[in-house]
Nucleic acid binder design. Structure first.
Lengths: 210, 210
DNA sequence: GATGAAATCACCCATATGGGTAATGGACGG
DNA sequence: CCGTCCATTACCCATATGGGTGATTTCATC
């Protein structure tokens, strides 16, 4: 069951000392092999496509192309390679852009060597590892935003609106007249401070009202 | 800096053995105190509101109200209490509903005692801990779905559509005629297989096309 | 040099939408 | 008992929208 396969790991990090430290860690640990070390995204793009490592540790702040864009491009050609961001950045922007780009792990730079190695293993086994502080941002994005105080009926109508149904269709489904549907929609618009369906749907999706 | 404050932990778990094991773990570990143990959501609702523990370990599968709904209700009255789901369920539905309900941690039942204690600490310090397999689902939800092959121009128009702009407004912003905007929108609808703005916006938001 | 995709624009037409205004009955709380 | 909120319905009207059809230009690729 447990095949202790050797994991090939590449590292992209512009700081010389940090890069060497990680490289040494990888090389000095059984079960891991260094699949490349780069100090900029451009070189990494070329080198990593060739070496096809299992896992890539990627810094975000690089001179030239940043690590996130680098992940985005590499993930396109190497969909089976896993990327772990290893960075000091902990703002929502960096985190969400990284995950959208295809990162499956996100570690803060203060992670211990053990944590880094553990993360590599987990990610390679199909898991995902995110530093607790970062994970809080991620789970927070799942919480519904402030309730706009829609009534039950209005929520029903809003849900139908998001499915692209028109007055008549909604009316039939809820067994009320199209005029009533219209009245509810007007009320919804007022509460959401919008005046078109598109905006209402956007808000509903963004704030997970449906 | 480091005040080793005692963390009060409650546990909601219908399995007798599991509940007692966790309770014993909490009581037997320095720095933790048991703030209640319940075998169903209804009792937990009453008991936890009174005892106001720092962290709650919550099972999902309970007889009667499930753990997710229990978290949703408790989080309303105890917004500062942290909830960690501790469950065998690993489907997307359970995970996303839990996070929406207000859980900040999600551990699979096979987590070790050390992992549970560590998760409690991290969550209590403002972090979030998610089992790697579960986290993969979560980060996966940030990846854009299959590209519908929209052209650059079409993506620009789609973005404006999501902001609730009409033909004229989009036309002015992109320095083209309203008729052209209309043509682009028709093309977008065809590619997304929709025929209203609401549906287009819904898809764009869901699949993170914008 | 042909072919095709993209972007641009125009016109017609039926229907949908958003905004304004007004009214009625039920439920609930003070 | 009164006020308020909610759900319900109706009507008018200007504009927006979606669907159909057709055309031109540019540009890259074969």
């Amino acid at each position: 069951m447990e095949l202790p396969r050797i994991i090939s790991v590449a590292v992209v990090e512009d700081d010389h000392l940090a890069r060497e430290a990680i490289a040494a860690l990888i090389e000095g640990t059984e079960g891991f092999i260094l699949g490349g070390a780069f100090d900029n995204a451009e070189d990494a793009l070329r080198g990593i496509v060739d070496s096809e490592p299992d896992v890539v540790l990627m810094d975000i702040q690089l001179v030239g192309m940043d690590g996130i864009e680098c992940v985005r491009r590499l993930k396109e050609v190497l969909p089976h390679t896993d990327f772990i961001m290893l960075t000091v950045l902990d703002d929502e922007e960096s985190v969400f852009r990284s995950l959208s780009a295809g990162a499956t792990g996100y570690l803060q730079k203060d992670a211990s060597m053990e944590e880094v190695l553990h993360a590599i293993k987990e990610v390679h086994e199909g898991g995902s590892v995110i530093s607790p502080g970062i994970a809080r941002l991620v789970v927070g994005s799942f919480r519904p935003r402030s309730e706009p105080g829609l009534t039950d009926r209005e929520n029903e109508v809003l849900a139908r609106l998001c499915d692209g149904e028109n007055y008549r269709s909604i009316a039939e489904r809820l067994f009320i007249s199209a005029n009533t549907v219209k009245a509810h929609i007007k009320s919804i618009y007022a509460k959401l401070h919008v005046n078109t369906r598109a905006e209402a749907v956007k808000l509903a999706m963004r704030d997970r009202l449906v």
